[in-house]
């Protein structure tokens, strides 16, 4: 465990807790994209399939449970909670998740030189699910960014949520660089690319977020 990864995990944890707290306290999900939240639930579900089979550490298991629990409860609140669901603006949240999920699944099936199709085993299945969840995580924020562009108003909790989410992945990239030089541990080149794509997707948001913070004005995204 290095400081970049710990900071990344804490930032990630903070982002989901900020969102959950917002929805729970003000009983509103205005400006939040349900599609993005559902995609994140899928990301965690497909990445933590081995939560009961491969035990790493109490920290690892606890964080996995928290991420699974928080992402699914956010989806539950936005879909079924009688008060929260009324504030969900579905005709602003029109991004079709399948146009993100299908390419990620195809990419996950195509790019794993480790396996050929003849060895359809559980580890093949798990590996495909891991890579699928990595790619999906890189693009899962798109529906939310599209919705922010559309609604143009962005309350500061949602802004903080997106900012923390982007910051966590940037910290993870620093973690991969750190591990590459210190532990002779390297992640798959595909992981680098999906992590970079994910961080770059946030780049323009970061720019506007920083501008609004510097000029102390409300965050406005250009149309």
């Amino acid at each position: 465990m290095n400081i970049f990864r710990l900071a990344g995990d804490m930032t990630h944890l903070l982002s989901v807790l900020v969102l959950l707290l917002k929805i729970h306290t003000i009983k509103s999900c205005a400006g939040i994209s349900l599609k993005t939240q559902e995609l994140y639930a899928v990301v965690f579900a497909t990445r933590y399939l081995d939560i009961f089979t491969s035990y790493i550490s109490p920290y690892n298991t606890m964080m996995k449970l928290i991420f699974l629990g928080s992402s699914f409860s956010i989806v539950w609140y936005m879909r079924y909670h009688k008060i929260v669901r009324r504030s969900y603006d579905k005709d602003q949240d029109t991004f079709r998740p399948y146009i993100l999920m299908l390419p990620c699944l195809i990419l996950a099936l195509l790019i794993n030189e480790k396996f050929t199709f003849k060895e359809i085993s559980t580890s093949f299945f798990l590996f495909v699910m891991w890579t699928f969840s990595l790619y999906l995580e890189a693009v899962a924020i798109l529906p939310q960014l599209v919705m922010l562009q559309r609604t143009r108003n962005i309350d500061n909790l949602t802004g903080q949520y997106v900012f923390l989410l982007g910051a966590y992945r940037a910290l993870y990239i620093l973690n991969w660089i750190y591990r590459y030089f210190t532990e002779e541990h390297f992640v798959h080149w595909i992981t680098w690319i999906s992590g970079l794509v994910q961080t770059l997707l946030y780049a323009d948001f970061f720019y506007y977020y920083f501008q609004s913070w510097k000029n102390n004005v409300k965050l406005q995204l250009p149309a």
Partner: peptide, 10 residues
């Protein structure tokens, strides 16, 4: 089984 994202990473 090496994971695409470090085996001990979230």
């Amino acid at each position: 089984q090496e994971q695409p994202q470090g085996h001990d990473e979230l």
